[in-house]
Design a protein around this nucleic acid. Structure first.
Lengths: 220, 220
DNA sequence: GATCGTCTCCCCCGCGCGGGGGAGGTCCGG
DNA sequence: CCGGACCTCCCCCGCGCGGGGGAGACGATC
């Protein structure tokens, strides 16, 4: 079965763009659209999409409130991908705190958009992409970085994966982690790959950064 | 001229071992020994060693006080490498705060010992080796991690190197850093290598960890 | 009993990374 | 005027890393 997506944005142009990009994927299907947050709940209930691509700035009900409403009222809610124009959008920050699973810049390349949708659908959290980093930079001054922390928590690492990430964050190589955990090197590679995928990280360095930013590991 | 070292340890066995290992290097010369901290100052004044390999736990004057005394009273003081038996030695922590440039576990392999001496002599800070990481783990609960911060500050990165490290800590690849700084990829490699050497890091991940641990970059 | 998630290990492959050299340029200070 | 520090770029080389697959074993859940 295909990965179903509901688009929520007040601009038809944006919805059309997203639909064009996503529907071009054989395994992704846009099952509905909404122009404001108020229309989201009934649509989600009826269409039961896997992912909701939600604009933050919308009339009537913004993306933050809409996210909260969906997560509060719908059983087994969809994954929510927040869509925004600006990387320094404080609404995005709020949306992540409200329970969104990741976010996406409108100017992202089509492949990135597709990737983001797939990632959140699979349970990942898009914690790392450059856009998120900038967000973290901006709001990094606040304690504990709830957005990053929430995103990482929602990444739902398995126990083993969390263990591997902790060791990565101590600077260990795959071989060293394997020795420490008394498993094969190939096994560690599997776990590391899983961690990178779930965190939306490109390499172990980015994963470690995410670990620090989220408070998963603490420097102090 | 060779790299000159002064050994300070109350156990003759340890001094003999260090001397054997270090004197085996063509470019390193052990120019003197002391059995306790009280004897260090005059010896340093007379021998003007490049590096002092200093035990922390000693009678009369321990390594911390000796370190402070040397740094306070000797103009152009030598680099101080703290030698210890235990990785969780709170004295080592104090010594780093007192101004020591790095530390060394007695059980380290000869190559590591030689490497450590060369590194601090060249202005590096041995911020990262596994032993230090464990230290950081242990005393990591204290704010700002003064030991790590002090060590990194003393690593004396050039402006460019610091810039590169900051970008590394944002998850950028060498190619991305090159694009950002508008220089060649080979140039970035040079800077990255310099950073790794000065921090005693094995790879960029460890360097980024050091950056976080030291407060050079802040997650919050 | 069947299914799913997790952990484990295996293959192949390409590329980025880091180490080892070296070398030219500027600019500053002795 | 001549080092020395710094930034820049170049070469070669090996290996670790990460992506792409797949597969078997186990326990929990349905």
């Amino acid at each position: 079965m295909p990965l179903t997506v509901l688009l929520v944005d007040d601009e038809p142009l944006v919805r059309a763009g997203l639909r064009a990009i996503l529907d071009a994927q054989p395994d992704i299907e846009v099952v509905g659209e909404a122009a404001d947050g108020a229309a989201v709940i009934p649509l989600v209930r009826r269409l039961r999409p896997d992912v909701v691509a939600m604009d933050v700035r919308m009339p009537l009900l913004d993306g933050i409130e809409a996210t909260r409403a969906v997560l509060r009222t719908v059983p087994e809610p969809p994954r929510i991908l927040v869509v925004t124009t600006f990387e320094n959008d404080e609404y995005v920050y709020e949306a992540l705190r409200a329970g969104a699973d990741g976010f996406l810049l409108k100017r992202a390349r089509p492949e990135e958009i597709v990737h983001a949708v797939r990632l959140v659908a699979e349970g990942g959290s898009l914690l790392f992409p450059a856009s998120v980093r900038r967000l973290v930079d901006t709001y990094g001054a606040e304690r504990g970085n709830p957005a990053a922390r929430a995103a990482l928590e929602r990444a739902r690492l398995t126990e083993r994966e969390a263990e591997v990430l902790r060791l990565m964050a101590r600077g260990l190589s795959n071989a060293e982690i394997a020795a420490r955990l008394v498993v094969g090197a190939e096994t560690v590679k599997s776990h590391v790959s899983a961690v990178l995928a779930k965190l939306g990280a490109r390499d172990r360095t980015q994963a470690v950064i995410a670990a620090y930013e989220s408070g998963f590991v603490a420097p102090e």
